[in-house]
Structure formats: structure tokens, C-alpha cells
Design a protein around this nucleic acid. Structure first.
Lengths: 147, 147
DNA sequence: GCTGGATTCTTGACTACTCAAGTTTATGGG
DNA sequence: CCCATAAACTTGAGTAGTCAAGAATCCAGC
């Protein structure tokens, strides 16, 4: 088997382990999944804490449908609201509520801790973490950097 | 946001892009998903092309339940069979059929091509591919190396 | 040689997506 | 003005996995 295929399969495998760790911590302490957290985090990074659902989908690597489904429970528990656009009645923004923002900052602490635990120890000098981030960015689908 | 968290989130994001690419190619040409392919590949690597379902789960980073569910359609289409263990009536091996083995070698070609496409171009010198593989191995959950 | 606990596997109920189809609204050309 | 096409979103149906509970079997100690 080539290095390329081997690497791709390792990446897939590493992801499931990673997701499990984040899910365990986040759901234990805050009752949300990693997917929920990343969604809230993106909203938190957006100006005004709000985004069109289509853009959120693009940023998260989901379909529009996936965003609708992921947002629903967060709206139910009051972390996110739906806001209409004055110019275009088709678009429904997703916006962090004040509660959502408050809860997000606490989730972020947990997520940082979890990430730190994962990348801790002699196996993970800072340069390797940055190096990994760099390599992953080259793969990153459409990534964070826009289309 | 720390490098560690950023890196973890990038990894998750990169994986979804990767899986989509493999799924598209594999399902188009061979009618299987990447998950199906990795399952068959592990079987193919095992001595005799067969493994206990529990070990398969461990190797793939799934639960035993996930393996049962994933194997079912592959048994239906005749790529895998169930074999009993002479010593222990609890265990049911999953084994590649002759057809399964033949189909697998062709899938492997497609998977290699896809991986090669992904890691192609000036952004991906061979040392970086190997470097990525190495970094990912440090994360690899329980990985291939056993517990 | 029986009984209690552990192991292997399957199943039911649930979650988190996907894709395809449908609804509503916007927009550019005649 | 009206129409065709396109964009944003939701919804129904299906897939891939999870977890918790259950059935069968194995084995260790008495």
C-alpha cells in the first residue's frame, strides 16, 4: 500500500478517536457534541455572532440540510435564534443568543483543555502541532480560508 | 484559540472532505463506501482473510455493533462470509470470499488513485506525506498497533 | 460438575447526517 | 409586468453509526 493511501486511512482513523474524546468531555460537562460546539464556535467568530445558514454549511463542511438539522436542538435549548434578513426574505440567519455566547465561552475552555491533553507529552513539541495544522490545511476541503 | 484546538478542528474538517472524495470514487466504480472498503482491506490483510468481529471492530475503531451492521450488506452481496470457530461457539469470523478478494484488489487500485490525486502537486512532496502519516500515528486512537 | 462472571455477538431504539424534492422569494430579460 | 431561472431553506426517506440490553457460550473456582 502506498504512503498516500496509508496516510489517508490513518487520518480517518485518527479523526474518530479525536471526535470521541471531545464528545465525551463536552457532552459530560456541557451537554453538547463536538459538532454542536464547532457550530457555535463558528457563529461566535462571525461578526455579530450571526451567519446565513448556507455560509455556515460551507464553513462547516456540511450540507444546508445538515445545518438545519443541527441548529434545531440548539434553538430549542435557547443557544441560537433564527433572525430574518431585512433585504432577502429567503435567508434566515442563525445567531448566538446571550446565553449561547456565555455557554460557548465555557465550552471553549473545556475544548481547549481537551485539545491540550491530546497534544501533550514529549511526543508533541509545539512545532509538530503547528506542522500538523499546516499539513491539514492543505487538505482542508474548502477549509476556513473561504472558497 | 490555541494551536492544539485549531489543529484538532482542522483534522475533523479535513476528514469529511477526504471521506467524500473516496466515497464518490469508490461508490461510482465499485458500489461500496470508504467504510466498506476499509473493512474489506483489513480482512484482506489478516491471515487467511478472516478475523473475529471483535478484532475487526478494534482495528477499525468501531463498536462490535457497528461491525455487525457494516458486514451485513457485504455478506448479502457475497464479498464476505460468516465462518464459525471450531473451538469457541461464540465467535463468528468474517472472511473474504474469493469474489470479495477479487473485487478488493480492484477497489484498491481506485483507492490508490484517489489517494494519489489528493496528495499530488507541489504542495505534497513525499516527505510531507510520510511526515503527516507519522504525526497521525501519534493520534491514532488505539491504532493498528493493538491496545 | 455447577455456578457466577466475563466474552462475543446481535438487536432495538436513537442520533446525525445525506440526497432529492418541494416551497418561497429574488432577479434579469423580453 | 411577467416569466424563467436561480438561491435559501426545509422536509421525507434512507444510511451509518451509537449505546444499552439480551442471548449464547466459555471458563475458573469451589
Amino acid at each position: 500500500m502506498s504512503d498516500a493511501l496509508d496516510t489517508a486511512l490513518r487520518l480517518v482513523r485518527a479523526q474518530t478517536a479525536l471526535v470521541r474524546r471531545f464528545d465525551a468531555r463536552l457532552s459530560g460537562l456541557h451537554g453538547v457534541s463536538l459538532a454542536d460546539f464547532t457550530l457555535l464556535l463558528r457563529l461566535g467568530q462571525a461578526p455579530g455572532g450571526r451567519m446565513r445558514r448556507v455560509d455556515l454549511a460551507e464553513a462547516l463542511g456540511l450540507t444546508a440540510s445538515g445545518v438545519t438539522r443541527g441548529l434545531a436542538p440548539l434553538e430549542r435549548i435557547g443557544l441560537v435564534t433564527r433572525e430574518p434578513d431585512a433585504r432577502d426574505a429567503r435567508v434566515a440567519y442563525a445567531a448566538l443568543t446571550a446565553t449561547g455566547r456565555r455557554r460557548l465561552t465555557r465550552m471553549l475552555v473545556t475544548a481547549e483543555e481537551t485539545a491540550a491533553e491530546i497534544f501533550t507529552g514529549p511526543a508533541w513539541p509545539a512545532t509538530d502541532i503547528a506542522g500538523l495544522a499546516d499539513l491539514l490545511t492543505r487538505l482542508g476541503g474548502t477549509g476556513l480560508s473561504g472558497r
